[in-house]
């Protein structure tokens, strides 16, 4: 049974395995530095659908399909599906789950949803609940823009601190202890709001939440940055990433080379006009499932602290002058499945 240690960290005792993972992305992500890592790339951002909302649901289905394929898992063997996206009422997920009959738990954690859903799936599996549990999230540039910002053909200028919502989806399917990658521990975040009000600077709004969760995770598990070969946030982008380093430096901790961010990895800053990097809950999901998990599986990476961050505002509360509450959840994924006796 999973153990609650410290404040907010849940340690796995059986070390559940991520048995299947898949990713699906749009054209720009496919042309980015990680393009060859993704399982499914479509040049048609409509994914053959008549609305952007339907396109996002279709994108999710592609990621799920790829994850099932990779793990040789029958869809009906997934006992519980934890899924989320950025759309109002989580419709991207609800409509992608509409016809498959899966037990569906809809989650909203903005861009933190991949860590949130993976945490839930892992804790369920660690406690022997179900055969497999899935974690699935998506974001789509066009469906996000029309909901949060402007119409596609509107001529606006994005400030340099703005991030670009990735058209991407990732799916991880967690099963009982078997082959790597394993989930060893998760830390559930608390909402941190440092008063940032600029919805065009979400990296700055989210960096303190990432700092808080990562620090809590270190304290609760007795680990340090050196315990991980990769501390991966998603998606602080260039501005938030820099700020996270600053916050740790104030504690005398240099994250150094082991720190990276999904929003910085998914696009080419020089060639692709994405300003401060990628965002959206499909960004960290696709980078995790397309790039990171395969590397842990093959033994290239050993211990990854995957910390997805979410900005939990809406256009309505921003118009009311509210600042941006942010959250981060951390998942320790490892190629070491040894069950530690505690």
């Amino acid at each position: 049974m999973s153990v609650h240690i410290g404040n907010g960290t849940i340690e796995m005792t059986s070390m559940p395995s991520i048995v299947g993972f898949g990713s699906a992305v749009g054209r720009m992500e496919g042309e980015g530095p990680l393009g060859s890592c993704f399982d499914y790339v479509s040049d048609d951002s409509g994914f053959g659908e008549s609305s952007w909302e339907k396109a996002e649901s279709r994108l999710q289905q592609h990621a799920l399909e790829q994850a099932l394929l990779r793990g040789s898992i029958a869809e009906s063997d997934i006992s519980f599906m934890f899924a989320g996206d950025l759309l109002n009422q989580c419709t991207g997920s609800a409509y992608s789950m509409r016809n498959n009959g899966l037990r569906f738990v809809g989650l909203y954690g903005a861009c933190s949803t991949m860590a949130e859903s993976l945490s839930m799936a892992s804790v369920f599996m660690d406690n022997g609940i179900g055969k497999y549990c899935g974690a699935l999230t998506s974001s789509h540039f066009c469906s996000a823009e029309r909901q949060f910002r402007f119409p596609e053909t509107y001529g606006g200028q994005r400030p340099p601190s703005a991030q670009w919502t990735a058209t991407a989806s990732g799916c991880a399917i967690v099963g009982a202890h078997g082959q790597p990658p394993y989930v060893r521990a998760v830390t559930v975040g608390t909402i941190i709001d440092m008063g940032i009000k600029d919805a065009n600077n979400m990296g700055a709004a989210m960096a303190p939440a990432a700092y808080d969760t990562i620090k809590t995770h270190f304290a609760n598990t007795g680990t340090a940055p050196e315990s991980y070969d990769l501390i991966l946030t998603g998606d602080l982008g260039y501005v938030g990433g820099e700020l996270l380093r600053d916050l740790f430096l104030q504690d005398g901790i240099d994250l150094g080379e082991r720190y990276n961010d999904c929003g910085m990895m998914i696009f080419d800053r020089e060639k692709q006009d994405v300003h401060a990097g990628g965002s959206g809950c499909g960004c960290s999901a696709s980078v995790l499932c397309g790039h990171i998990l395969p590397r842990i599986q093959s033994g290239e990476a050993h211990n990854v602290l995957f910390t997805a961050t979410g900005a939990l505002m809406s256009p309505t509360v921003i118009q009311q002058g509210e600042s941006i509450p942010a959250i981060a959840h951390a998942v320790h994924i490892s190629d070491n499945g040894n069950i530690t006796e505690g």
Binding site: R27, M28, G46, C142, E145, E152, T153
Partner: peptide, 8 residues
């Protein structure tokens, strides 16, 4: 048709 900033 619909606009698409991510299209080529």
């Amino acid at each position: 048709g619909r606009g698409d900033k991510t299209a080529k």
